[in-house]
Simulated assay, not measured.
Amino acid sequence: MSIGYPWIRLRRLCQIMRQNFAKCCEEKLNAQINMELKACHQYLAMAYHFDRADVSSPGVHGFFLQASAEERQHAEKIMKYMNKRGGSIILSSVPEPLPKFTDALTALKHALNMELEVNQHLLEVHALASKQNDPNLCDFIEANFLQEQVDGQKILADFIRQLERAQTDLGDYLFDKYMISAGMHNSVAK
């Protein structure tokens, strides 16, 4: 009886079930997972920046805290998908987030740029999956991410415009109160 490494047997089982899942798609999904975790980490840092006593913006804090949780859920959803397809998940280190922002407007603009970057990468994953003739991956990306990204970008753009119009201390205060009830995706009509 030979003693083998258990992870080698497990890897073989994953490869047995793997079908029509190109290595380049697996690599692109791993990059997406790490991008989602980077956004999660950045949103978490942003949330707790706005929770500080000298900033005190509970609405903005809650908004970014919710955004952080959503990004983590996206990463986990992709990881579950990778396991279903027989892929290998490779997590990289998460870069240090920007530590603080001068105001909510700057933070929202940074959030919109992050969302645009995440969306662009998702579009690239979809295009690659299409090129590799992987309709399952195309469907996964379409069903779980693309519309949500567009909706989230619209909400952020609306918040940015509203806050630009309210550029006074009172306006910032009122906007923060409005943010308590807002979310990245819960106010979008289904």
Results as ranks from 00 to 15, higher is better:
E70C: 00
R161T: 14
A31T: 14
K38Q: 09
G62C: 06
M82T: 02
L29G: 03
A69L: 10
K28R: 12
N30Q: 02
A111S: 13
Q42Y: 01
A69I: 11
T168N: 09
V55D: 05
I180Q: 10
R165Q: 15
S93Q: 13
A69P: 00
E76A: 03
E96K: 10
T106M: 15
P97Y: 06
R72K: 11
L65D: 05
K109Q: 15
L112K: 11
N136M: 08
A39D: 02
G152A: 04
I141C: 04
N20Q: 10
I33A: 03
D51H: 14
N113G: 10
K190T: 05
A143Q: 13
L98P: 00
L137M: 00
S2V: 07
P6I: 02
R161M: 12
L122V: 02
M35G: 04
S2K: 07
S92L: 03
H74S: 01
D172T: 11
A107C: 10
E36L: 03
Q73M: 08
P97H: 08
K154R: 09
Q120W: 05
N83L: 15
E36K: 05
A31P: 01
L163V: 09
H110D: 15
Q32L: 10
Q147C: 07
L44N: 07
H49K: 11
E70V: 05
F175S: 05
L108R: 00
V55C: 10
V55T: 13
I8A: 15
L156P: 01
D139Q: 06
R9L: 14
Y48E: 08
P135D: 14
D139I: 05
F145H: 03
Y5I: 07
H74W: 01
I160F: 09
G171A: 08
Q120G: 13
G4E: 15
E27P: 04
L137E: 01
L98V: 15
P135H: 09
H49D: 13
A47W: 03
R161P: 08
A111V: 04
K38L: 00
H126L: 08
R72I: 05
H185Y: 15
E142H: 07
G59D: 02
E26P: 03
D176A: 01
A31W: 08
K84W: 09
P99Y: 05
M17A: 14
V94T: 14
I33K: 04
A127K: 14
N20P: 07
L174M: 10
L128K: 15
D151T: 03
Q73S: 06
R161Y: 15
P97M: 04
N186H: 14
T106N: 12
R85S: 05
N144P: 06
F21W: 10
V150N: 08
L29N: 02
A127E: 13
D169F: 13
N20S: 13
I141Y: 03
R18Y: 05
F63V: 00
E117D: 13
L128Q: 14
Q32S: 12
K190C: 04
A75E: 04
M1W: 12
L29T: 06
F64C: 10
K38T: 11
